[in-house]
């Protein structure tokens, strides 16, 4: 499909994809292609390990809010990235913990566990649950796992043009699930992201559900360098179908203190912090 034809098709299919300010540049051959942009995003320095506090606020369409306080850790290993999130408050969810091993090899299924204090058991979770919403938030298990990265195993990416990335030059890329099964599993038929091309960080993403309706928008803000690493400190997710929204605020981000390996074990999520 010719780039111009593709763009027209996209505008017909997804008229709300209008946050691209300069999408007429979609055919600009000087722009890096989508896979190249995705590779830049995924090779961005995230530190070998990080620990941080994460406050989650969930708000429904009537304005009722729920607050969660968590502590999370992430560490890269030779073959996988390990992430663990411990819930600290409020009492009804305290001691719940989520652990994931995300393997580099795309053919290898991720391993995920959830500790549920009411059962006092660590439950194995199917990695295909990744399209399910994570503990009441508007982020799916997959969104939580990827953070600001993108999955080149699940999506093919194309550069549509340039965009305004929070006042900075950006590249607009769209992602199409590689198979119908992946689309169904993730619950997305399309993504459209504005990527800050100076620091290769996604600033804003929109997601369409498998019926082609706009599902949600993710906005990443308060991006600063912490210990030399570009770090997002706020993620806002708005679900257009339900009117529900989630804000994630990161604090006490630390890339330098040692993160012990035994935090990423089922024993650790059972014991809690």
């Amino acid at each position: 499909m010719k780039p111009l034809l593709l763009l027209i098709s996209l505008l017909i299919l997804y008229p709300s994809a209008g946050f691209a300010e300069d999408s007429a540049n979609g055919g600009d051959s000087a722009l890096p292609d989508g896979e190249e942009v995705a590779a830049h995003i995924n090779s961005r320095d995230e530190g070998q390990a990080v620990s941080r506090k994460l406050s989650i606020e969930m708000r429904d369409r009537r304005g009722k809010t729920r607050q969660r306080e968590t502590m999370s850790y992430r560490k890269y290993y030779a073959e996988e990235k390990r992430t663990v999130i411990f819930y600290l408050a409020p009492k009804n969810i305290k001691d719940t913990a989520f652990l994931t091993y995300d393997y580099i090899a795309p053919e290898r299924e991720d391993n995920q566990w959830l500790y549920l204090p009411a059962l006092r058991k660590v439950k194995r979770i199917s990695a295909s649950d990744r399209g399910d919403y994570f503990l009441g938030t508007d982020m799916t298990y997959e969104d939580i796992k990827l953070e600001t990265r993108v999955s080149t195993a699940d999506f093919s990416f194309q550069t549509l043009g340039s965009c305004d990335a929070d006042g900075k030059p950006g590249l607009q890329i769209d992602g199409t699930p590689r198979t119908a099964d992946i689309a169904r599993e993730l619950g997305y038929s399309k993504t459209l992201s504005c990527v800050d091309s100076e620091i290769w960080m996604v600033r804003k993403s929109q997601f369409w559900d498998i019926k082609g309706k706009l599902l949600k928008t993710i906005t990443i803000s308060n991006i600063e360098q912490i210990q030399g690493i570009w770090t997002q400190q706020k993620i806002d997710v708005e679900n257009h179908k339900t009117g529900h929204s989630t804000s994630l605020v990161f604090s006490a981000v630390d890339y330098q203190s040692a993160v012990p390996d035994d935090l990423f074990t089922t024993n650790a999520i059972k014991r809690g912090l």
């Binding site: 995920q112 990695a127 295909s128």
Partner: peptide, 11 residues
Amino acid sequence: FSNAFDNWVIR
């Protein structure tokens, strides 16, 4: 034992 395969968890 337990393991996950696609949508399934066997235990």
